[in-house]
Computed example of a mutant assay.
Amino acid sequence: MKISKRHIISLLIISIIALGAISVASAYTGTGFTHNVPSSKYYDLSASDILNKYSDTDCKVEETGVCTEVVDGDTIYLDNGKKVRFVGVNTPERGVEGYIASKNFVRKLCLNKEVGLDIDNAKHNDKYGRTLAVVIVDGKSVNEMLLKEGLAEVMYIPPSEFYPYNWADSSTHIPNSLNTITHTNSDSSSSDSGSYIGNSNSGKFHESTCKWGQKTAEHNRVYFDS
């Protein structure tokens, strides 16, 4: 059988369609985190409306820059060329339910505005070269807001200066694999206030000299002797 040019073209088209279908089926979904916050929820709210709901963060601004692009709900570009990954949180990937709402939330707060960074001193960059940081707008932590708005899940990857469980509340999604994480120091000893520091916000507890216990805000601390 003689194969014509038309047959070759047809086979090429079929191959391209098939490869496209495979790519869609195997699209990267990250941890698989999704949420059902409607993308329209924040349309009628100004950035000030959102920021006024939250208290100032304890994080300190170490660098500043203007946000020139929002890649998704947890990654932005600054005018100095730096690509920033919001530390401690994870939002839905492109094509996954919730992606647009999380991205639009960050766009409203950050795009074309000066933002502050509190860079993770324990691990400055991730494996993709992105700067790991808490993003701060008008003294408020966008990382914390994403968690409390239900737009992100906790993603704690040690080593890290930050413990995102402290930013979470009862509605925050915490992956099952992270629910039982505790951090202790086997060489630690008791303190005068108690051997263990509990966090009334996250429900976690630590030995009194554990660095994560010491990072717990005073108003969230509960001390235990055993």
Rank of each mutant, 00 (worst) to 15 (best):
L117S: 10
K215G: 09
S141H: 02
V84T: 04
G213D: 05
R94K: 15
I9Y: 06
G213W: 01
S39V: 09
W212A: 08
L19A: 13
L78A: 07
F224H: 13
N52H: 13
C210I: 10
G150Y: 08
S141D: 00
Y223C: 06
K204F: 13
V70R: 00
I100C: 00
P158L: 04
E207W: 11
S186V: 09
S195I: 10
F86A: 02
E149T: 00
S177W: 12
I157R: 13
H219W: 14
N166Q: 15
E153Q: 12
D56S: 15
N112L: 11
I9D: 09
S188Y: 03
D79K: 07
E69Y: 15
E63W: 12
A152Q: 09
Y28I: 03
G32E: 07
L146Y: 01
N90E: 13
H35L: 02
K53G: 08
K82S: 14
D120G: 02
L178F: 02
K123D: 14
N143P: 09
Y128A: 11
E62L: 10
I8F: 07
L78E: 02
C210A: 14
N90H: 01
S46P: 07
S4D: 13
D169Y: 11
V222M: 08
A122G: 12
K123A: 15
G65A: 03
R6E: 15
C210Q: 08
L12A: 08
K113S: 01
N80L: 06
K41N: 05
N220C: 07
L146D: 00
C59H: 15
I157W: 06
T64E: 05
E149I: 02
D225G: 14
S208C: 10
E144A: 13
S195G: 14
H206G: 13
Y128R: 12
D44F: 08
R6D: 13
E153K: 03
K113N: 11
K2V: 15
D58W: 11
S189D: 06
F162D: 04
M145R: 04
Y54M: 06
I13H: 05
K41I: 01
N104H: 08
L78P: 00
S15K: 05
H124V: 14
L51T: 05
V135F: 03
V71L: 12
C59Q: 13
T182C: 02
I181F: 09
V24R: 14
N179K: 15
V70I: 07
L19C: 15
Y223S: 05
V115F: 00
D56W: 09
Y43M: 09
I157Y: 14
A18V: 11
N90F: 02
S141A: 08
R130T: 12
S160F: 06
T209I: 12
E153Y: 01
S10E: 13
E97W: 05
R130D: 10
D120R: 02
K211R: 11
Y156P: 03
D138L: 09
P158D: 08
S193D: 15
T131Y: 04
G213N: 05
L19N: 11
G194C: 06
